[in-house]
Design a protein around this nucleic acid. Structure first.
Length: 151
DNA sequence: GCCAACGTTGGC
DNA sequence: GCCAACGTTGGC
């Protein structure tokens, strides 16, 4: 069982959206490193849900992986923002997973706060200029975050 | 809205 | 295979 952190813009898809829908395909990832992380996920892996590009970026809830990686259908959909005409149908370039809602935090653990936690100092998340939208979380990092959150 | 940082593309 | 240009991410 592994831990992950996944970013989403709340204007596009928020923790409240996931809570309401229970499950959601996590598609649209178009970065090779993030894609490789998606492909290494297993059902039951735990996920920190992070809101990015918003007034108060931070961890807002938890989810878990409910389906392992499958070809991201949006890459073959010409009407999708994520359409990728260069992806070979017999060897799809992009993957998605399905995640299920677990909990919403009573209060977000803000990026400002995350930056002050020594145990998290090597996470790409807290590094300036970081753009990785899916990243692994170590058990020590998970524990440090869990110690500061209530759901 | 701005801009720094980064990944990707494409010319050579 | 290098690297400049470009587009995107994401904090502020």
């Amino acid at each position: 069982m592994a831990y992950w952190l996944m970013k989403s813009e709340p204007d596009v898809f928020s923790i409240d959206d996931l809570k309401r829908k229970k499950k959601e395909a996590w598609d649209g990832v178009r970065n090779f490193q993030a894609r490789n992380y998606l492909r290494s996920m297993a059902v039951g892996d735990q996920v920190l849900f992070y809101h990015s590009s918003c007034a108060v970026p931070g961890i807002v809830g938890k989810a878990k992986v409910s389906k392992p990686a499958f070809p991201d259908p949006t890459q073959f959909n010409p009407d999708s923002d994520y359409y990728d005409p260069t992806s070979p149908p017999d060897n799809p370039r992009w993957s998605a997973v399905e995640v299920a809602f677990v909990s919403k935090l009573k209060a977000p653990l803000t990026l400002d706060e995350l930056k002050t936690i020594e145990a998290l100092s090597s996470m790409p998340l807290v590094k300036r200029g970081n753009r990785l939208s899916v990243m692994p979380v170590s058990s020590a990092e998970w524990a440090a975050i869990a110690a500061r959150t209530a759901s």
